[in-house]
Each structure stands twice: as structure tokens, then as C-alpha cells.
Design a protein around this nucleic acid. Sequence first.
DNA 1: CCCTCGTATCGATGAACGTCGATAACACCC
DNA 2: GGGTGTTATCGACGTTCATCGATACGAGGG
Lengths: 125, 125
Amino acid sequence: MRGKMGRMTTTDDAGCCGGTTPAVDVVGARDLARTFKALADPTRVQLLSIVTAHEGHEACVCDLTEPVGLSQPTVSHHLKILVEAGLLEREQRGRWAYYRAVPGAVDGVVASLSTLTPETAPTGA
Amino acid sequence: MRGKMGRMTTTDDAGCCGGTTPAVDVVGARDLARTFKALADPTRVQLLSIVTAHEGHEACVCDLTEPVGLSQPTVSHHLKILVEAGLLEREQRGRWAYYRAVPGAVDGVVASLSTLTPETAPTGA
DNA sequence: CCCTCGTATCGATGAACGTCGATAACACCC
DNA sequence: GGGTGTTATCGACGTTCATCGATACGAGGG
């Protein structure tokens, strides 16, 4: 589902002055911002960090509630958002729900981010 | 404006089970999320993309209002947020305000993001 | 000087978000 | 089946955000 991160569509903007085609179009910007929105909360960054640093790169909710200092429903809510963003994946083992970091997900965000930096961006000239 | 969402969260990580020290602490997560919050809007991603792709990696507000299809105050508002996030920098030349992408800013975000990926993260074992 | 042009700020408004307590759903054990 | 433990969902509440129109600020030009 998380297939379209690096989007380089050549829409014609070419407005008034130095119109060079931007690296992302409107749809790509919306899709990219959706991923960033999942990371735009300190708790979710912390959760992602804890899960990644955990043994086997996975952790259950009971391991996460305490470090972030929030209630269990809130932690579940944040985890759901991270799963929907494609950054975490859920696996139910017995009574516990284990959350694991999706291997190439962060790399995808990095690749999309590199589209917005001047070094890797198409030289506007 | 800085309210009281700072939750102390008992700085001892290492909860009950497989507690490995996470890659980012509470302050780091808050700082990282602040940058992502600046990118968590489609308009701002689009603005950053347009500025980066522009000639000389800079653009004035009049160049940006039209492509994003929003009012001029709204565009100025988004640009201010991007400047405060350290992603854009403003320079007033004559009557126009030119916005330019800060060279190493995105790379800093990429470096912080790499801390959260399992490959580069400290192997929790 | 006054007028025009480009940009930033202000105040308001509707939508989205983070958080919680209560509760439902699900899996195990006896 | 009843009881216990773990997680997800629901409803509510306060805060933050994105957006606009109106307006103020600042720089040039006649």
C-alpha cells in the first residue's frame, strides 16, 4: 500500500519568472506530507525509536506504555497511525500485539526527502 | 505559545522486558517531530519543492502564490513556518522577499531519520 | 509627498489532532 | 465456562492548525 513515495511527475508550472518544474507535484506533496504527519508527533518518534532499538526490532504495547508516559489507549492510537503510515507493522502473537519496524520504510522517506534538497534536486537553471 | 505539553515521562527507559536504550531521547524526539511538523503539510512540501527547483534555488512570494493556489497571507504563513524550521531562509532584496533552501537542512533531517531505521540503529540484542 | 506594489501581521472560523476514561473485543488459563 | 490479562475502539474535551479577508508595514517611483 505504501508504494508511491518518490514521485517525480513533470507538471508544467512555469509561472511568471523562473519556472522550473518542481520535484513533486500536488499529489506527491500530499502523499509525502501524509508520511511526515505520522512523524510530526514527539510520541510517535519516540515510539518508533523505542521499537527500533528493542530486541529483535519489535515490542509489544506493554513495553511502550511506560517509557512514553501516556495511557494505553493513546499509545495504541499512535501505533495505529504509524502502521497506517507504513512505518510499523503489527503482528498478533498470543495475547500480545508485537510492533515491528518495516525494514525499508524509513529509507523510503529518506529517498523522498532527498528529492527536496538542492544537491539532489534537478538543477533549476 | 509554548504550552504545557511537555510530559516528563520518567527518563529511565529500560522498562520491563527487553529494554534497550532508544536512539533518541524525549528531547530529541520533540525536536525531530518539530521539524517533521513543518513538513507535515502538503502546501509546505510543495513550497519547498518549488523553491528548490527554482532558478538559483530561490523564489519570491509572488512566484509561489500561484502554483499552490492559495492566498498570499497563507503562503507567507507557510513560508514563515519553513523558515522557523530551518529549512528555508529569507532575504529581502528591494521590494521582494526571496526564499532560499538552506543547503544542509534536509541532510540533517535525513541524518536524524537514519537513527530510526533498523539498519543503522544500534542492534537491540 | 503621495501613490503603488509586494509582503507580513492580525483576528476569526472551521477542521483536525492528542489525550483521557470507560468499555468492548480477543486470547489464554483453570 | 468463568476469570484474567492485553489490546483496540468509542465518545468527549481542550488545543492546535490551516485558511481567509482586512489591514499595517516597508520599499520604489512619479
